[in-house]
C-alpha cells in the first residue's frame, strides 16, 4: 500500500494514523427534520442525531425533503408527551455521531418519567437508550420486596386482580346470557 494515499490527511504527520479520519470525506451540508409530540411543540433535529432512532431513520432515509418541505411537514408523535420527546431529542443531540458510553447517568430517576421514556424509546426504536433505560428499571427493582414493587408501580395483587377479573367476567357472562336469550328469542 502506498503511503501517499493519505497525503492530504490533516492528522499529525509524526503519529502514524491507525484509521483515516472521517473528516477527510467531503463535507455535506447537514439536513434537519422536525418532530413534535402530544404538546405540538416542534423540535428541529439534525438527520445525524435522528440516526439513533431506527424508526425515524427509516422514515427519512428515502424522503429527500428540502429544508422548506421538512419544516412544513413535522413528524407527529401524538403518543409521546412533550417533555419525554424533549428528553429523547436531547439525548439524540448529545450522542450525535458519537459512540454511546457504557453507562448513561442522565436518565430520569422518577419512575413515572422513566416508564414513559421507555415506551417512547421503544416506539422510536432507539436501541442504546432503551438498553440504558431497562438497566435503570432493573436497578430500581434491586433490593426491593414484591410488596414494595407492587406499591411503587401500583400493580394490583393477584387477589385484587382476580376480583376485578371476576367482576368483568360476571358482566360479560350476563351480557352473553342476554345475547343467548335474545338469540333464542330470535330463533323462536
Amino acid at each position: 500500500m502506498s503511503s501517499t494515499e493519505q497525503g492530504t490527511s490533516s492528522a499529525a504527520p509524526a503519529e502514524p494514523t491507525t484509521a483515516p479520519e472521517s473528516a477527510a470525506a467531503p463535507e455535506v451540508p447537514e439536513s434537519f427534520y422536525y418532530v413534535h409530540g402530544k404538546d405540538k411543540v416542534v423540535h428541529k433535529v439534525s438527520a445525524g442525531a435522528l440516526q439513533h432512532s431506527a424508526l425515524i431513520h427509516g422514515m427519512i432515509s428515502n424522503l429527500g425533503y428540502t429544508e422548506e418541505q421538512a419544516k412544513a411537514n413535522p413528524f407527529p408523535f401524538e403518543n409521546i408527551d412533550g417533555d419525554i420527546l424533549q428528553m429523547v431529542v436531547d439525548w439524540c443531540n448529545q450522542h450525535k455521531g458519537k459512540p454511546t458510553p457504557p453507562e448513561d447517568t442522565n436518565l430520569p430517576k422518577q419512575k413515572e418519567k422513566l416508564f414513559d421514556l421507555v415506551l417512547a424509546v421503544n416506539y422510536l426504536e432507539i436501541k442504546e437508550l432503551l438498553t440504558y433505560c431497562c438497566k435503570q428499571v432493573a436497578m430500581m427493582v434491586k433490593g426491593k420486596s414484591p410488596e414494595e414493587i407492587r406499591e411503587i408501580w401500583m400493580i394490583p395483587t393477584d387477589a385484587e386482580d382476580e376480583a376485578a377479573e371476576k367482576e368483568a367476567k360476571k358482566r360479560a357472562g350476563k351480557e352473553a346470557a342476554g345475547e343467548t336469550a335474545a338469540a333464542a328469542g330470535d330463533a323462536k
Partner: peptide, 20 residues
C-alpha cells in the same frame, strides 16, 4: 401511569436481562 406489568415484551426481556 404506565406500569411495569404493562411494558411490551421487548422491554420486559431487556429489564430481565439486567436482573439477577
Amino acid at each position: 401511569m404506565t406500569s411495569l406489568d404493562q411494558m411490551p415484551a421487548v422491554v420486559l426481556n431487556l429489564v430481565l436481562e439486567n436482573c439477577e
